[in-house]
Nucleic acid binder design. Structure first.
Length: 650
DNA sequence: TTTGGGTGTCATAGC
DNA sequence: AGGCTATGACACCCA
C-alpha cells in the first residue's frame, strides 16, 4: 500500500505539472500546506488569491501562460480559482462532491479494513464504473486521499464516523473547528484530483463522460448563464442572508465539510464575477464546460441517476431562457427555505429598488417643480417662451429699467372689448410718450410662440380686428395696427389718461410703482386701474407660467409612466425567470440531498434515510445533518398545548 | 353645433 | 399689511 501511495503521489505531482502546463488548474499544495479556505480568502480581501492575483486573468490569456504553473502564489490562486470555477460551473451546492471525497476519506481512515471496498464503490451502481479502469481511478482517489492525509487527519471526520449526532457535538466541536479546514482541503483536493485525473486520463475521462451527458448546448448556455450582469444586487442580498443563516445554525451536528466553498464562495464569486462576467473569455467558457463535465463525472461516478449533471440540466435549460438571470439561480448555497425567503425578499428589494428609482425619478420632477415653486420668479419663460426676463422675478423687479424691455407679455384678448375707447378718448394717445407707442409688445403672445415677437406675424383675434375696424377704418394702417394690439387694460389706461403702458405698469418695481402712484397725482379711479392693470398683468403671466409648468409636469409624468411600464415588464420577466430557476435549483437540491444521505451511514452502517434526515448548510460552510422533525410531534405538542389550554379554561 | 385647446381673469391661499 | 406668486375655476374665443 505504501508503494501504491508513493506511486500515486509521484504520479499525481507529475500529472499536476502536466495539467498545469496545459491550463488545467490542479492545486494540491494549496490544500496540503496552508489554510486557505475560500471564505478566508474572501474575508481577507487583498490577501485573497481571488482578489490579489492577476493570474485568473493572465491564465486565460496567452500572456498568462508566461506565469510558471508551479508558482506558489499560483497554487493558492488556483485553489480559490478552482473553487470558484466549480461553484460557477455547478451553480448549486458542492456538497455532493465534497462529501463524496469525505466518504473516501472515511473509508480510508476507519472502515477500509472492515468493509473492504470504499463507500463510493458501494454506492456505485453504474455498470461503467465496474470497469477496471474505473477501479483504478477509484483506487487512485483512495490512494491519494490516504497519501495526502496529514497525521492529524486520521482523527478527522473520517475517524469520527460518517455522522456526528447531536450528542457528539460538544465533544467534537472544537476538534471540528481545528480540523475543518484541512479536512475540507483534503476533500476538495481529492475531489479535484479525481476530476482532473479523469480529465487527464483519457480512459477515465471517457468512462466518466459516458455517464455524464455533456450537451454542448447546455454547457454553452451555462456559460451564458454565468455571463449574467444583473447579479450584484442579488449577491449582496444573499450575502446578508447567508450571515443570518449562519447565526441560525445553532445545532451543528455534522462535520464541517466546508460547504462554504460552494456557498459563500459561490455567492462571493458571483458577486465578484458578475461584474466581469460579460468579459468571460472563450477559454473561461471552455473551462466552465470542462468543469461542468467533470462535475458530472464525479457525481456520475457515484450515482449516475443522481448526478448533478442530470439535475443541472433543467436548471441550465431554464437558465438558458435568457441571459438575464438573477443570482439566486447561481447561489444554491442554502439548502432550506431560506433560499426562497431570499427570493421573496428579493422581490421586496426589487420593489424597493423600483421605489427608489421611482422616487428618484419623481424627485427630479418634484425637485423641478419645487424649484419652480420656490423660485422667486413667477415666470420661467426665459428659455421657453422667448421672454427675456421674468417680469415677476425679484431680479427683474430690482431692475428699474428692465421693464422697458421688449418683453413678450401675453396678449389680452382684446376681443372682449367692454370698454371701447371713444374717439375722444383715443385722442389721448397723442399724449403718450413715444416709447409707449413704439411698444407694441403688450399684445405679444410670446408665451405661446417667440414668433409673436415679430409684429408681422401677429395674429390678432378676429373680434378685436372687427371691433377696431368699426372705429378706426379711416386711420392709417400703422396706427390701426397699434390700436388692434391694444389690450383691454391698455384701452382702459388710455381712456383714463394713464401715461404708462401696461407693460411698464406690470413690470416696474413695486417701489417705483408706489412712487408713481404717489407722485403723479392720480385720481382714486386711476390708482385703482393702475393696481388692477398691474395685478392682472402679473397674474396673466403667472397663469401662463402655471400652465406651462402643468404641461411640463404632464409630459414628464407621461415619460415616467412609459419608463416605469418598461421597467415593470422587465422585472416581471426577471421574476418569472427567477421563479423557474429557483424551482429547478430546489429540485436539484432535493436530489442532491437524497444522494448525499444515501451515501452516509449511521452507526449501524445503514444509509441515512432522506425521510428522517436533511442537510442544512450554514453560511460558514458547515453542513449540518439534522433529523427531520416529524409534524406529528409538533402536532402532538400542539395538541398538548391545546389540551392544557382547554384544561385551564375548564 | 359641438368640442377641445388656448387665453385672460378672478378668487384665494401661501409666502 | 401689502405685494407677489401659484393655481383652480370660469368665461370666452377659435379652429
Amino acid at each position: 500500500m505504501q508503494i501504491a501511495k508513493k506511486y500515486f503521489s509521484e504520479g499525481l505531482i507529475q500529472l499536476t505539472i502536466l495539467l498545469s502546463l496545459v491550463g488545467v488548474r490542479v492545486d494540491i499544495d494549496s490544500y496540503l500546506t496552508g489554510y486557505y479556505s475560500p471564505l478566508a480568502e474572501i474575508n481577507l480581501g487583498p490577501s485573497s488569491a481571488y482578489i490579489q492575483t492577476p493570474f485568473h486573468i493572465l491564465r486565460d490569456t496567452l500572456d498568462g501562460n508566461g506565469v510558471h504553473p508551479k508558482c506558489p502564489e499560483l497554487d493558492y490562486f488556483f485553489a480559490s480559482r478552482r473553487l470558484l470555477d466549480e461553484v460557477r460551473s455547478l451553480g448549486s451546492p458542492r456538497f455532493p462532491t465534497q462529501l463524496n471525497a469525505w466518504l473516501v476519506h472515511q473509508v480510508s481512515a476507519t472502515d477500509k479494513a472492515e468493509h473492504g471496498p470504499s463507500t463510493s464503490e458501494n454506492t456505485d451502481s453504474s455498470p461503467g464504473l465496474e470497469d477496471p479502469g474505473d477501479e483504478a481511478g477509484d483506487e487512485a482517489v483512495r490512494g491519494r486521499a490516504v497519501d495526502q492525509t496529514s497525521p492529524d487527519l486520521g482523527q478527522g471526520p473520517g475517524a469520527a464516523g460518517a455522522c456526528v449526532f447531536p450528542q457528539q457535538v460538544d465533544e467534537t466541536k472544537v476538534k471540528e473547528e481545528e480540523e475543518a479546514v484541512p479536512v475540507t482541503q483534503l476533500a476538495h483536493s481529492s475531489t479535484l484530483e479525481q476530476e482532473n485525473l479523469l480529465e487527464g486520463n483519457p480512459t477515465l475521462s471517457g468512462l466518466v463522460h459516458h455517464y455524464a451527458p455533456p450537451p454542448t448546448s447546455t454547457v454553452v448556455d451555462w456559460s451564458n448563464l454565468l455571463s449574467v450582469t444583473d447579479l450584484a444586487e442579488l449577491d449582496s442580498l444573499v450575502n446578508e442572508h447567508l450571515s443570518e443563516l449562519d447565526s441560525d445554525m445553532t445545532s451543528a451536528i455534522s462535520q464541517d465539510v466546508s460547504l462554504h466553498d460552494a456557498t459563500v464562495t459561490g455567492a462571493g464569486a458571483f458577486g465578484f464575477g458578475s461584474g466581469r462576467a460579460e468579459s468571460m473569455t472563450v477559454a473561461q467558457q471552455r473551462r466552465t464546460t470542462r468543469r461542468l463535465e467533470s462535475t458530472n463525472s464525479t457525481l456520475s461516478d457515484a450515482s449516475p441517476g443522481m448526478a448533478v449533471g442530470f439535475a443541472a440540466l433543467p436548471f441550465a435549460s431554464v437558465c438558458n431562457l435568457t441571459g438575464n438571470v438573477t443570482s439566486q439561480s447561481l447561489l444554491g448555497g442554502c439548502l432550506d427555505e431560506a433560499v426562497f425567503d431570499q427570493i421573496n425578499q428579493l422581490g421586496l428589494e426589487g420593489l424597493d429598488t423600483i421605489d427608489n428609482q421611482l422616487m428618484n425619478s419623481l424627485g427630479c420632477v418634484d425637485s423641478q417643480g419645487l424649484e419652480d415653486l420656490d423660485s422667486d420668479s413667477g415666470l420661467s419663460l426665459e428659455s421657453s417662451y422667448g421672454a427675456p426676463v421674468s417680469p415677476g422675478s425679484s431680479e427683474m423687479s430690482s431692475s428699474s429699467s428692465s421693464y422697458y424691455e421688449d418683453e413678450g407679455g401675453a396678449t389680452g384678448y382684446s376681443s372682449d372689448v367692454d370698454f371701447l375707447p371713444s374717439k375722444g378718448i383715443m385722442d389721448h394717445t397723442t399724449m403718450w410718450p413715444p416709447v409707449d407707442l413704439s411698444e407694441n409688445v403688450w399684445h405679444d403672445h410670446s408665451y405661446s410662440s417667440p414668433a409673436f415677437l415679430n409684429k408681422a406675424s401677429l395674429k390678432l383675434p378676429q373680434k378685436t380686428e372687427r371691433a377696431f375696424s368699426d372705429d378706426e377704418d379711416e386711420d392709417d394702417d400703422g396706427s390701426r395696427l397699434d390700436e388692434r394690439e391694444l389690450s383691454r387694460d391698455e384701452l382702459r389706461a388710455r381712456s383714463m389718461c394713464i401715461p404708462f403702458s401696461v407693460l411698464q405698469i406690470v413690470n416696474m418695481p413695486v417701489e417705483e410703482f408706489m412712487e408713481i402712484l404717489d407722485c403723479h397725482g392720480f385720481s382714486p379711479e386711476q390708482v385703482t386701474l393702475l393696481r388692477d392693470i398691474r395685478r392682472r398683468g402679473k397674474n396673466k403671466l403667472a397663469a401662463q407660467n402655471c400652465r406651462k409648468r402643468k404641461l411640463d409636469a404632464i409630459t414628464g409624468l407621461q415619460e415616467e409612466v412609459e419608463r416605469l411600464q418598461a421597467q415593470r415588464d422587465r422585472l416581471l420577466r426577471e421574476k418569472r425567470l427567477t421563479a423557474k430557476t429557483m424551482g429547478a435549483v430546489g429540485h436539484q437540491i432535493k436530489q442532491l440531498t437524497r444522494d448525499v444521505l444515501a451515501r452516509l451511514r449511521d452507526d449501524s452502517g445503514r444509509p441515512l434515510s432522506p425521510e428522517r434526515f436533511t442537510l442544512q448548510c450554514g453560511a460558514n460552510g458547515s453542513i449540518v445533518i439534522q433529523p427531520i422533525r416529524r409534524p406529528a410531534v409538533s402536532t402532538s405538542a400542539g395538541n398538548k398545548t391545546d389540551k392544557r389550554k382547554k384544561g385551564k379554561k375548564q
